[in-house]
């Protein structure tokens, strides 16, 4: 039973004759508990596809449905609610609020959703512990390394217990080790939490962690492959434990 359906999705920018086609007639479905890597060169449309799925941008034609709900039927308020209740975002440059501490950043989507502050902060502490940052919760982003900031960002995405996590080049700004740590955590989320993770990336090592690889070029899907060597929980969990103790 797919949780996300993308049907005949097309996105263009500008007007003819200078029209730029970012996506053309894309059809895809995503299952619950699936780790999907979308790969392609710069400008291929992978980020655009991710933005459409996350409700950040509207398609020119075609539909995206999440959990049987059409995103195109939603107004801004409903889309905002959807983002803060069902979708977690992990950005390439982390996008943490510099004024807030790590735990406040993680608690933010909950607070925005009306969860009492103390409850939200308690939950944030747990999330930070899960990504191995229990001892960094009162630090501000500027006091954390890139890898640590991205882990805070993942904790923020997880705080709302989303059904879907979207990552736009989440390892793009990180060194190899930190990138691996991030991917390990994301894998763990899929394996143990039965959540769906979709990453837009051009790093081939992601295939070591993903269940499925979608290749995209010039706005069209050119390949959709199920990956067999899917790491199981027995391998992932010790790795996560290592990250936590780092």
């Amino acid at each position: 039973m797919p949780v996300i359906r993308v049907e005949n999705l097309t996105k263009t920018y500008g007007q003819a004759p200078n029209e730029l086609i970012a996506l053309k007639n894309v059809n895809l479905t995503f299952e619950q508990g699936e780790f999907v890597a979308i790969m392609g060169p710069s400008g291929s449309g992978k980020s655009t596809l991710l933005h459409m799925i996350g409700g950040l941008d509207k398609p020119t034609s075609g539909v995206v449905s999440l959990d049987e709900t059409l995103l195109s039927d939603m107004n801004d308020k409903a889309l905002s609610r959807l983002r803060r209740q069902k979708i977690g975002f992990v950005f390439q440059f982390f996008n943490l609020l510099p004024a807030l501490t790590a735990r406040e950043n993680v608690a933010l989507p909950l607070i925005l959703d009306g969860v009492p502050r103390s409850t939200a902060l308690t939950r944030a502490d747990k999330m930070l512990a899960d990504v191995g940052l229990a001892d960094r919760k009162t630090h501000r982003p500027a006091e954390l390394s890139g890898g640590q900031q991205q882990r805070v960002s993942i904790a923020r995405a997880l705080a709302i217990e989303p059904m879907l996590i979207l990552g736009d080049e989440p390892t793009g700004a990180l060194d190899t080790q930190s990138g691996n740590d991030v991917l390990t955590i994301l894998r763990e989320i899929v394996t143990t939490g039965q959540r769906t993770v979709i990453l837009a990336t051009h790093e081939s090592r992601v295939t070591d962690y993903a269940d499925r690889l979608i290749r995209i070029k010039d706005g069209a899907i050119i390949d959709d492959t199920r990956l067999t060597a899917k790491p199981n929980s027995d391998i992932i969990q010790p790795k996560v434990a290592t990250i936590a103790t780092n």
Binding site: G54, L56, D76, K77, S80, R81, L82, R83, R84, Q85, G88, F89, F91, N95, L97, L108, P109, L112, D113, R156, I160
Partner: peptide, 9 residues
């Protein structure tokens, strides 16, 4: 970012 993580207008 706030909007992306669900803040309303």
């Amino acid at each position: 970012t706030l909007r992306a993580i669900g803040a309303e207008r």
